[in-house]
Structures are given as structure tokens and as C-alpha cells.
Simulated assay, not measured.
Amino acid sequence: MAEFPRGRKPEENRRFRLVATDIDGTLINSERLLSRLTIDTLAAVPVPVVLVTGRPLRWLEQLYDQLPAPLPAVCLNGAVVYDPHTDEVLRTEPLTCELLIDVVGRLRDAVPDISLAVEVDDGRAFRHEATWPRLWVDHRVEVISSPDELTSVPAVKLLVRSATADPDDFLELVSKALGGVAEATRSSSSALVEISAAGVTKAAGLAWLCERDGIDASDVVAFGDMPNDIPMLTWAGHGVAMGNAHEAVRAVADATTASNEDDGVAVYLRKAFNL
């Protein structure tokens, strides 16, 4: 069951002019599927819905195949804003080659036991070191032959993985090593940290899209479950944590809803919009 903030009735949330939602751990279940209730609810919501995700562009296909029509997306934790109707990248904020060289140097000096990878070509291609676990076969995924290939072109995300560290401790360690020159966050249950250019967050990408469309932060309801969602949930007028959310996300949210396995986004939206 959805939980609304103390003293606020669900009907009052009908002022929302835009719905922003994370994908993994939020909109889809553990099998990466949208429920029929969620599909029907997204179609019935009377305001725009935007996907705000850590996923790269090439991973949107799996979700778009389940929807009657694709939704606009803020990808790669805010580094890319994408219009699926025109297949156009509206905005991109990559890490420059110079910044990548600096960040990779800091990480190799300060953090042991790491493997590195980069999202390039606006998230349409992926390069990784040989030590990176190969979990799928995809022609857009390439094993680098030289460490210099990690920093040879701008990247919309740098990923750093540890095989042994605690996920929260690893994020803290990486953040300390960066010293503020870039953004570090995580969305995985493993020790995988995602690095973007300074100031690039889900909140920043969504704010750019909303400003373009004349929508104020106070008019946005946002859903998320992991630390990379925290900037978005605190920026939005109403941030909702999933029932399965990381404790840090629940701590900053205005409300909570059911888990992603129990259609938490759909449950909340149906009450908020009287669907």
C-alpha cells in the first residue's frame, strides 16, 4: 500500500505535471518485466512520464519493447537526455578525455582491486578491461587491448568495480579518491560505482528537461530505489521511495510505496491521480 506524507491527502497530489521514474528496482520487477498493471497505469496517467535511469541508451530497447510507445529518457545518471521518437540525443554531458585521465589515475593510485569500463558514443557502446566480468554477448561491447583506450575518447560514464569490497564502503572510498572532481554514485547491489562529470546527476538531467518544457520541480513526482536516485528525489517536489529502496533513499523521500515486485509505482500513481 502506498504511504502518503503525514497531513497530505492523495487527492492533493493531482497538481503534479510530470512523473519521473527510475527503471531497475523501481518500475520493473526482478525479471526485468513491466506488469500489466504498470503498463496500463503509465498509459492512463494524464501527465508526461519520463524515465530517469542509470542505464545506457542501448539498454532502453528491452523496456521499450514492452511499452505501447517509448518514453523520453534521462540516461546514464543524467549524462544523456534522449528523445526516442526522433532517436535524438537532446543533451549530453560527458567526462572529457583530460578528466578521464585524471580520474583513472586517482583511482589506480588510491583504490586497490579494481576493474574499469566506460560508456562511450552517448551510451551506445561499452569498453572494458579484460578483468571486467563478461555477463553478456553484445557487438556493442568491446574489450580494450590497451589501458589508454579507456581515456582516448569522452565517456558519458566511467564504471569502477571491486570483486571484494562492501558496496557502500566502496562508494565512500571512490568518492574520497575523486576529491570532488567528478560525481560518484551507485545503483547496483554489488561493489560497482558509476562516475559522471562534476554536477551530472539524475536531478540535473531531469531539471534540464523540465526547464525546457516549462515544468517546475515542485510539479514533479519522482520514484527511485538506490543512491543514484537521491539527487532526483530531493530535487523533485515529491520524492517517493520504493518499499525495496536502500535505507539512504528512504531517509530522504517524502513518501514510500510498495516494492517493485508489488507494482509500487503503479499503486502510488493510481491513488495520486484517482485512476
Rank of each mutant, 00 (worst) to 15 (best):
V153D: 11
Y64E: 14
I23Q: 04
V252Q: 08
A236P: 01
R186K: 15
M232V: 01
D102V: 14
S115Y: 03
G237F: 00
D229L: 03
R17S: 11
G239S: 05
T201E: 02
N244Y: 06
L192F: 08
L150G: 03
P94L: 09
A204F: 03
L100Y: 05
P5Y: 06
L18M: 15
T185Q: 06
V240H: 00
E129W: 00
P10V: 10
P133N: 07
R36I: 08
P227D: 12
L60F: 10
L171C: 10
R212E: 15
P68F: 03
L67K: 04
A253D: 01
Y64P: 02
G264A: 03
A272F: 02
L206Y: 00
A255H: 01
H128V: 08
A130M: 04
T53P: 09
V193G: 01
W132H: 14
D225C: 06
F170Q: 08
A272Q: 10
M242C: 03
V137S: 14
M1P: 15
T38S: 11
V89W: 07
G179L: 04
V104I: 15
P10M: 08
V249P: 01
P48D: 08
L99H: 01
H85T: 13
R8F: 14
N274Q: 15
V156D: 12
I28Q: 08
A245M: 02
A2C: 07
D65V: 09
S152A: 15
D262K: 12
A248K: 11
R55Y: 11
E88L: 13
L178Y: 00
E194N: 04
A43D: 10
W132S: 12
H139Q: 14
V220D: 05
G237I: 05
